[in-house]
Design a protein around this nucleic acid. Structure first.
Length: 408
RNA sequence: GUGGGUGUAGCUCAGUUGGUUAGAGCGCCGGUUUGUGGCACCGGAGGCCGAGGGUUCAAACCCCUUCAUCCACCCCA
């Protein structure tokens, strides 16, 4: 029966699970659009080399988390592990890397071969924005505003942490410094040896102790960079967005520089990052496009869905029927009512249960109103509208009045 | 990739030192009530006890393997 199993970390989603995810996606999409961001949808499959050059060949993700395979013509492909690289590639591929400022968003499944746990699946959903061509700190502020709006709409409590990485040289210098600083320590785990910057957010007590006396990236910034960071912070203050400066915040993808940030939720255990992003000014050029600044973020749709509970949508009208003759009329009524108001949820019950059962079903499924269509209704074109939520007498309505009752 | 927990009905879970036919609650279907809901009562369906192997007269239970899931490390959204 192995052929009937789902692939590890890629569950079928149904019921409440998909309701929550789908609701989060809708909120994201609406919010992006309200900031006048346009959708850009790229393929799930890309050449693996694209991610080697963007995410970084030495990064954890590319080292062991990519689903890669050869196609029938021996091209080395992979399932995308994140969204930014594909979107940047699309800009270059389609000649969109011009001077016009671009505000783009994406939404869809990503894949990483990791050990699954809460808030971490092998297929997971991300939504994100990229603001291309604007190097000002206002652009960084704009995307933080988007992030904040989404989290507010979803009523998710979270803490914003920010840090400033400077540019490639700062990072290199800081990395070199850490390498030297840590070289006195023995028993360093592999991941720290490979990339000393990883020691910053390590949970290992040994490393934590050692790092508490190390210099921070802030000490490696020049005056302009410190000023820029200061500017960003005062703008956040002015708007009234609370944040915590975290000099240990570094991000796992190689392309980040300048401002980086994360929104953290305490309700998710170890996978507490629900949204993260920052500036990636060098990436477009590195991938072969023009030298354009860019900033953006990605959020974990599944992770947000874990911490919100979607208020189950209330359903509007249950149309039952008592025999075959009346059923078609019942369907006609449903059809007309939905035309009158397309946002209504209207069930046309097509089974053979008794009237009592039908009403019970309507009630237990959370419908507000119910009508039962039978011979009388068919003959007189009149129905009794039952209010299932409040104890009120039935309304006897002609077809026209019924339609009016439900129009928007 | 490392360490640990858990897999029994659609869902949440009981199941005694290994002992006849594996249970409950919720949900589903039917009835009390053949055209009027919420409550109550009665009945029913639904299980290869995650999968494969082993020990035993006998395994949901013990052993091995494997898969899935959860927690932590790691990583990230």
């Amino acid at each position: 029966m192995t052929d009937l199993k789902t692939i590890r970390g890629m569950p079928d989603l149904y019921g409440e699970n998909i309701e929550d995810i789908s609701m989060v996606e809708k909120v994201c999409q609406k919010t992006f659009q309200s900031f006048n961001f346009q959708e850009l949808r790229t393929p799930i499959l890309e050449n693996k080399s694209l991610f080697n050059r963007s995410v970084g060949e030495s990064s954890e993700i590319m080292q062991k988390e990519v689903y890669e395979f050869k196609d029938r013509k021996d091209n080395l492909l992979c399932l995308r592990p994140e969204g930014t690289a594909g979107l940047v590639r699309a800009l270059i591929t389609n000649g969109l890397d011009n001077d016009e400022i671009k505000k783009l968003f994406y939404l869809g499944p990503m894949f990483r071969y990791e050990r699954p746990q809460k808030g971490r699946k092998r297929q997971f959903f991300q939504a994100g924005v990229e603001l291309i061509g604007d190097q000002s700190s206002d652009a960084d502020i704009e995307i933080i505003l988007i992030a904040n709006t989404i989290l507010e709409k979803l009523k998710i409590k979270s803490d914003l942490e920010i840090n400033y990485l400077g540019n490639v040289e700062n990072l290199k210098n800081y990395n070199d410094y850490l390498e030297k600083y840590l070289s006195e320590t023995s028993d360093l785990p592999d991941y720290v040896m490979k990339n000393p910057i990883r020691a910053l957010d390590s949970k290992d007590e040994n490393i934590k102790n050692k790092m508490s006396k190390a210099k921070s990236i802030t000490d490696f910034l020049n005056k302009d960079q410190s000023d820029e960071f200061f500017k960003i912070k005062s703008k956040l203050d002015e708007i009234g967005i609370k944040y915590k400066e975290n000099v240990k915040l570094v991000r796992g993808l190689d392309y980040y520089n300048g401002l980086v940030f994360e929104f953290l939720s305490s309700d998710l255990g170890a996978q507490n990052a629900i949204l993260g992003g920052g500036r990636y000014d060098g990436l477009i050029k590195k991938l072969g496009g023009r030298d354009l600044p860019a900033t953006g973020f990605a959020l974990g749709v599944d992770r947000l869905a874990e911490v919100v509970k979607a208020s189950s949508q209330s359903k509007d009208l249950f149309i039952g029927c008592v025999d075959k003759e009346s059923r078609t009329y019942a369907q006609t009524l449903g059809y007309k009512i939905r035309k009158e108001n397309s946002s209504l949820i209207v069930e046309n019950y097509l089974g053979n249960a008794s009237v009592a059962k039908q009403l019970k079903k309507a009630d237990s499924q959370g419908f507000k109103f119910a009508i039962i269509v039978g011979q009388d209704e068919l003959k007189n074109k009149k129905v009794k509208l039952k209010n299932l939520k409040e104890d009120k007498p039935d309304l006897e309505l002609k077809e026209k009045d019924l339609l009016e009752h439900f129009e928007c």
